[in-house]
Write a protein that binds this DNA or RNA. Structure first.
Lengths: 355, 355
DNA sequence: AACGGCTCTGAAAACCTTTACGCCCGCGCT
DNA sequence: AGCGCGGGCGTAAAGGTTTTCAGAGCCGTT
């Protein structure tokens, strides 16, 4: 495959120009296509570049060009199916326009988040996407306001996915799912199946995403004419382990429920296992719904009824919206729709305990 | 948070130097720490930098410095649990040393892989990690030989995770799991449980990773004194859907097996569902083992006995080894160990059909 | 007192590309 | 024939940082 003289050191545009018998200016124009060049000259340059296996230096290019085509997506962990899907969406949308996508994992540590954003400023990323619900405390607001202004001043855009902007005039774009609507719909689904005593498993007070789901859950109960006391929220947080632990305890403590609304599918996974371990059956004894519709949800036992939040689409939307109309985007708030996916984890409540 | 004069345009080291009353050379030395600077001066510079909210320009830095601290990990898709774990390992190990980690998803398309590697050359990545088994054909060998030489000539290192180097003197480092040993062990586990008719579900002829697992499977059968005909490999490829389809067909066609060795856990997920759909029970009627031990494997129904391939460790090892002794690393081949995780998807073969 | 060596610092080059500016030439119009 | 215009192309500057080289000042030694 035509590797002529891959001498040591990198081939520069100077050498390409020399070989093609033109100046570096002309070579640059021919290679980048930024400026018209007669076909014959252009062909000569391209030929020389190919012969020499020339590789443009992105740094030199970015240095003179100002910014660079790079997007960054920051998540808690890459291995969470939901975050992975969002990252994939960002990567795909970025790749479609020839952009680079770098990912940062914070492990939930604010310090690492700050370091990463700082790094992105140094790298000249033009788009930073922070993904995932958070506890919205004072520290968070300050931190994000700082990011927003810092990035804004270097001409980069900040997108918050599933987390709130700290204020209306902060130069950040919010894109998220309508958690409240989704939770309301899936709760309504349980209610219309006959359930009245539904436990919400996986609350995380202060976390805006979870709080919204809890709000939707409460709203659905109210829609159905149930009193506020009907709501029973277990604040065990997210994750498979948390769901397993909380469900195990709950089963030991009470029988006063016929259905479980898990804060996300991983919680549901843990809960399903706990229920099975306790010798109860889903959905005959207890109905379960989850949230997010991760790829394996249909392989749970039984296949999980859940709310599909098209995570990859969230990632794509974040990039698209941020890049579409940069002016209008700042401060905007976009809600993405969700829908229920009915599978087999919901049934009628057991006759004896219907109400 | 002390944002003084974030005027338009970026703050350069020149302004920092000016404010601190030193030259850019001294400022650079104080900021980068590459060269000793008296504490008092150093403090003045740091103070000025903080006051001005100075952000170093990574491009300028990389331009003069030659390379840059950046690793790239290339996978088929980010949403596959296994790849996600590898990527997380790379990211973590990179972050530990202050490196950046960019990820590329190819969707299995060689064209996109080539484009991405090219992009990494332009960006000056110092480490490119290609992850995932492949069909080792002539095109593959040519492609990778090209990568290896191209990257090598720009001083970058190439690591192949779970895929072969096209030749012994190709400047690439191979890090992978010992697929053959893992498959042999888990097959032996089935054999010692009494199974004799074991189907391997998920072959993918030419794919080196799968071929190695099949080889391990055959070796275990031979170890047990079984004739080569005892091996039954279904070449359905990987993925949940493939596993489901192949298992459904197999159940329709024959009863001549008591255990299934799924090529990976996703295949196992599909197979488990197909078995359940057919009204058979695991492990009472059919035993199933998987491969990789993805996070949700313990939530399968029943919890899946599988081979743990510490994927995150694979990613970390790839970075560590490549960066440890760059000289010695080229052409080296590292095998990482695996071990069985016994759960509940394996039992004795049904009495009537033990042999 | 002179000199060697050390520390601190600054001027300037180098890294590679893009682009503003301007030159030269040829063509078409008057 | 002269002039204006525009296409093609080269020169040089700019972009921000690191690093080399060398100068300056100081201390200790002879």
């Amino acid at each position: 495959m035509g590797n002529d003289m891959v001498s040591k050191g990198r081939v520069t545009i100077r050498e390409v120009a020399e070989r093609a018998g033109v100046s570096t200016a002309t070579a640059s124009r021919a290679l980048s296509g930024n400026h018209p060049v007669p076909p014959a000259t252009r062909a000569r340059v391209l030929r020389a570049a190919r012969d020499l296996d020339y590789v443009a230096n992105a740094h030199a290019r970015a240095l003179v060009g100002g910014g660079r085509k790079m997007a960054a997506v920051v998540v808690r962990q890459v291995t969470s199916p939901f975050y992975a899907q969002v990252a994939e969406g960002v990567e795909a949308e970025a790749a479609d326009r020839g952009w680079l996508c770098v990912v940062g994992a914070t492990g939930g540590d604010a310090q690492r988040e700050m370091e990463f954003v700082q790094l992105m400023r140094e790298e000249g990323a033009r788009l930073v996407i922070l993904v995932g619900g958070v506890v919205e405390d004072e520290a968070y607001r300050e931190r994000v306001a700082h990011y927003a202004h810092a990035l804004d001043s270097s001409g980069a855009r900040l997108v918050l996915c599933g987390r709130p902007a700290p204020g209306p005039e902060i130069p950040a774009l919010v894109v998220e799912f309508d958690n409240e609507a989704g939770a309301r719909a899936v709760t309504a689904h349980l209610l219309s199946a006959g359930h009245r005593r539904i436990v919400f498993l996986g609350g995380l007070p202060g976390n805006t995403a979870l709080d919204a789901r809890v709000a939707g859950y409460r709203a659905a109960l109210a829609d159905h004419g149930l009193p506020p006391e009907a709501a029973h929220v277990v604040d065990c947080g997210l994750g498979r382990a948390a769901g397993h632990r909380a469900m195990t305890e709950l089963l030991k403590r009470t029988d006063e429920f016929t259905a479980v609304f898990a804060g996300d599918d991983m919680v549901a996974a843990g809960a399903l296992r706990a229920i099975a371990d306790a010798g109860r059956r889903v959905p005959d004894d207890i109905s379960v719904v989850g949230y997010n519709d991760i790829p394996l949800a249909e392989d749970f036992n039984p296949p999980l009824t859940t709310v599909r939040t098209p995570a990859e689409e969230l990632g794509r939307a974040a990039v698209r919206i941020a890049l579409r109309d940069p002016e209008h985007a700042a401060g905007a708030h976009h809600l993405l729709g969700t829908h229920i996916v009915v599978r087999e984890s919901v049934g009628a409540p057991p006759p004896g305990r219907a109400l």
